[in-house]
Amino acid sequence: MPMTAATDDNDTLTYRAATPEDGAALWRLVRDAGTLELNSAYFYLIFATDFGETCLIAERDGVTVGAVVGYRPPRDPDAAFVWQVGVAPQMRGKGMGKKLLREWLKLPGVRDARWMTATITADNVPSQKLFKAVARDLGVDCTDHPHFTENLFPEPHEAERLYRIGPFAQP
């Protein structure tokens, strides 16, 4: 069931869980954002299909302008993992990342999570600030610790730290 909220400029956005039909739009959003690591189109089809209840789509006039791609890690069932937060170029500078994450926490597949997690590289200061701001706004802690070291990647890649926001009160 779609949820709606107003943006700062009074445009109405619709927030909803992803469906298989959203796979291509997710891929295009990430590609066009230009700031995220683009995965294969198949990856986004799988996430929109198999993890649709943990992936958020934000639309304006039927066009995808934001998304959160995420899932519930089997080894940490109390957590909801954020894979990517994508914001269309025309929506930047409007606090969209924070809005997306707050709406994401309302999805049926996410709302009972006690923690929000994500991995972030040391050079990705905007994502670090985003997660710290969301934690501050929600009145919970944000911690980080080493997670994926450089030697785990098959080709050169910066280490990824695990950010953990919470705990959230149970609904």
Rank of each mutant, 00 (worst) to 15 (best):
A5I: 12
T7K: 08
T7M: 15
D9Q: 10
N10D: 14
N10I: 05
N10W: 11
D11V: 06
L13F: 06
T14V: 13
R16N: 09
A17W: 04
A17L: 06
A18R: 08
T19K: 12
P20C: 11
P20S: 12
P20W: 12
E21C: 07
G23W: 08
G23Y: 11
A24V: 14
A24T: 15
A25F: 02
W27A: 13
W27Q: 06
W27R: 05
R28S: 12
R28N: 07
L29Q: 06
V30F: 08
R31E: 12
D32M: 00
D32V: 00
D32T: 04
D32R: 04
G34K: 01
E37V: 06
S40G: 00
Y42P: 00
Y42E: 14
Y42N: 14
Y44K: 01
Y44R: 02
Y44Q: 02
Y44I: 05
L45V: 07
I46N: 04
F47L: 02
D50G: 10
D50F: 11
F51V: 01
F51E: 09
G52M: 04
G52E: 04
G52W: 01
T54Q: 12
T54M: 03
L56P: 01
L56W: 00
L56I: 04
I57A: 11
I57H: 10
A58S: 08
E59L: 13
E59N: 06
R60T: 07
D61S: 13
G62L: 02
T64W: 00
V65C: 09
V65Q: 05
G66N: 09
V68H: 08
V69C: 03
G70C: 07
G70H: 00
G70T: 03
G70V: 05
R72S: 13
P73S: 07
P73A: 11
P74I: 13
P74W: 14
R75D: 12
R75S: 11
R75G: 03
P77K: 09
A79M: 03
A80S: 15
A80W: 08
V82F: 06
V82M: 05
V82L: 08
W83A: 08
Q84Y: 01
V85P: 03
V87Y: 03
P89I: 07
P89D: 01
Q90Y: 06
Q90T: 14
M91A: 11
R92G: 01
G93E: 01
G95N: 09
M96G: 02
G97R: 05
G97Q: 02
K98M: 12
K99A: 15
L100C: 12
L100D: 06
R102T: 14
L107I: 09
G109F: 06
V110I: 10
R111K: 15
R111F: 13
D112K: 14
D112G: 13
A113F: 12
R114Q: 13
T117W: 05
I120P: 04
A122Q: 09
